[in-house]
Design a protein around this nucleic acid. Structure first.
Lengths: 219, 219
DNA sequence: AAACAAGTTGACCAAGCGGTCAATTTCTTT
DNA sequence: AAAGAAATTGACCGCTTGGTCAACTTGTTT
């Protein structure tokens, strides 16, 4: 339509807003990750973002609204991982892929994971709808698929819901409790190899735990 | 010596102090569990303990000192569970017992678990010594035992340290992220049966994950 | 019952909090 | 280049915070 007439115009309208909002959201995620909503202060976030405090209020209103914006962004990220689990999938490949995706999240977005953990620890006051509607239905849907695999004898009999709890716990622990892992492993940070090894350990453990012999890795 | 002369005396000296400190510690654990050190307020804790705020300061000094007292009490509790894992133990029984003890902790002391989780999420500023010295050495000691079991062919080959990370994660998730579990399971709280079932699921999963056939349950 | 220690608590304080606002600068549009 | 919209920010405000204290009550010892 008019994008050839004014390419700079439509691209630049709200450009500053978008950039600053992203910048603030990123800083807020880091700060909320450490101390949660109640513990974080707007000054901390402002300093982390390199902007005056009044600027955050200009873009996001209140601390609660900024927090909700952070949570919303995280949920959008969260909801993508499960979707490779289909009835006709090979359980080994599907589960391994799911664990691998979750481990990648823990590595690439550890702050998101920690914000989520903080929110759950404080009773999830801003996530009740997500937990009771969205997450619950997704788990039920995926649980039916896993129940199908079980009844076909393709994996051990277990409660799929608990399997999800355990997989979430095992994968997110590498983001949420990274200090503990670094201390025990005696390293300053986990490098590529350490992450690949951790991912492998979790995948093997999960597959064996599901009664799947972790042989099929070749196409 | 003089304990028969004044039985009430020695028993009652500091009795009030002990009772009030315990009462405050219990309330503080609950409040710190929800929002961590930075998020909790002394007024909240005072209200939870049913005492005036000035009273908490009389017994514990500052908020940080109260927090450290809470952490110390938790660590004493924490450090007991591992000690049933000996080289000559049956791996199946030892691991099952360890998981069961951890699950019992999650049920009976969920607030302790959450205080710990909050502390780790904020980078464990008050636990670096514990993590880097105490915990690290315990893990190394127990890892040697597990490595022994592996080399004897009594369980699958895996990195014992990652096994610990996974077991801690799986068991503590039932305390730390209980909201999520209640939402997905669609219950207001987990009853005896639900906890027994969850414990069973985790134990079976861990044993299979370790390559142990979960047959031996009879004495 | 006298004397002292231990415990209680309302009132108070400086500091930091979330949030507002008006004055100003910078962008964008025409 | 004019004009209006968007963005910036130091100064400020009422309120809550962690913490103190002095006056007081309760418990313990002799």
């Amino acid at each position: 339509m008019n994008n050839s007439a004014s390419p700079r115009t439509t691209a630049s309208r709200g450009r500053i807003r978008r950039e600053n909002e992203a910048r603030i959201l990123e800083a807020a995620e880091r700060v909320f990750a450490e101390t949660g909503l109640a513990g974080a202060t707007m000054s901390q976030i402002a300093q982390a973002a390199g902007l005056p405090k009044a600027n955050l209020h200009y873009y996001f209103g209140t601390k609660e609204q900024l927090y909700q914006a952070v949570l919303t962004a995280i949920l959008e990220l969260w909801l993508d991982a499960t979707d490779a689990m289909l009835p006709e999938s090979d359980p080994a490949l599907a589960l391994a892929g799911y664990v691998r995706a979750k481990m990648r999240h823990s590595r690439t977005r550890p702050f998101a994971s920690r914000v989520f953990a903080n929110e759950l620890l404080s009773g999830a006051p801003y996530l009740t709808d997500y937990l009771e509607i969205d997450l619950k239905q997704r788990v039920e849907a995926k649980s039916r698929i896993i129940a199908g695999w079980i009844s076909e004898g393709r994996m051990a009999a277990l409660d799929p819901r608990h399997l999800f709890f355990m997989i979430w716990a095992m994968t997110q622990t590498y983001a949420d409790f990274a200090v503990q892992i670094r201390a025990v492993m005696n390293v300053e940070s986990l490098d590529d190899d350490a992450w690949e090894e951790a991912t492998g350990e979790v995948i093997s453990f999960v597959l064996r735990g599901c009664g799947i012999t972790p042989a099929a890795s070749a196409p």
